[in-house]
Amino acid sequence: MTGLFITLEGGDGVGKSTQAALLESWLVAAGRTVVRTREPGGTEIGTEIREIVLHSRGHISPRAEALLYAADRAQHIAMKVRPALERGEVVVQDRYLDSSVAYQGAGRVLDGGEIRSLSLWAADGLLPDLTVLLDLDEDAARARLDGANKRFDRLEAEKSDFHRRVRGAFLGLANAEPARFLVVDAAGAPDEIAASIRARVEFLLAHP
């Protein structure tokens, strides 16, 4: 038996955590065993890497940043995600390799193809069954973050042109792999967004 691997992607402030929680609750109510996780930080080692990449006060070069994310991914997939899928569970994950292509590729102006290849090597080729892209204008997303009165991490604190490149990269990835991606307007009501996601997941569960 193999499980179902679902990732949620999008810029900062689009509502990934909210939708991950709603999806997890629905799946559990339906009798599914769910592993909800995130990158970076889904393992003990990943938590240490997360602190470095998101909260370090020192400068991290773009290539070093990409390698740190890849190291987190290699540990996370090997120790947490693959074992859960082999047990037939549903993995609901906040960010995966598409975030690396968007943030370290387009955002940091590195080669997106190289970043994707690095990520796939780190993950031993594992791709999600479904990637939900929550799409929102970068200025609207920033307004949400500002309204939350939270301390920005290193990536959230980047300027608008950085986040504009990230959004464009995400949309390009979705356009290139329409069978894997579900693109949802993140400006909608949370319950409506959740219903769109559930409809696609129901189909995948019914057609393994």
Rank of each mutant, 00 (worst) to 15 (best):
L4P: 00
T7H: 00
G13I: 06
G15P: 08
G15L: 13
T18F: 13
Q19E: 14
A20N: 08
A21T: 15
L22P: 10
L23R: 08
S25A: 15
L27F: 04
V28D: 11
A30Q: 13
G31N: 05
T33Q: 15
T33D: 15
T33E: 15
V34C: 14
V35T: 15
R38L: 14
E39R: 12
P40V: 10
I45Y: 06
I45M: 07
I45S: 02
G46W: 11
R50G: 03
R50E: 03
R50D: 08
V53M: 01
S61T: 13
S61R: 04
E65D: 13
Y69K: 02
A71D: 02
Q75D: 15
Q75A: 07
M79V: 06
R82K: 14
R82G: 09
P83T: 01
E86P: 07
R87I: 15
R87C: 15
G88R: 14
G88A: 14
G88N: 14
E89Y: 15
V90F: 09
V90G: 00
V90L: 13
Q93L: 15
D94R: 08
D98A: 12
S99N: 09
V101W: 02
A102C: 03
Q104C: 11
G107R: 00
R108Y: 08
V109H: 03
V109Y: 00
E114R: 07
I115C: 05
S119A: 14
A122G: 11
A123E: 09
A123S: 15
G125A: 03
D129Q: 06
D129F: 05
L133W: 12
L134W: 01
D137N: 12
D137G: 10
D139S: 08
D139Q: 12
A141Q: 09
A143C: 05
R144C: 11
R144W: 11
K150V: 07
R154G: 05
R154K: 09
E158H: 03
S160F: 06
D161I: 10
D161Q: 07
F162G: 00
F162P: 00
H163C: 01
R165E: 05
V166T: 06
R167C: 07
R167A: 04
R167M: 10
G168Q: 11
F170V: 02
L173S: 03
A174E: 05
N175W: 07
A176L: 05
P178T: 06
A179F: 01
A179V: 04
F181Q: 02
D191W: 03
A194F: 07
A194W: 08
A195L: 08
A199M: 04
F203P: 00
L205M: 14
L205D: 13
A206P: 05
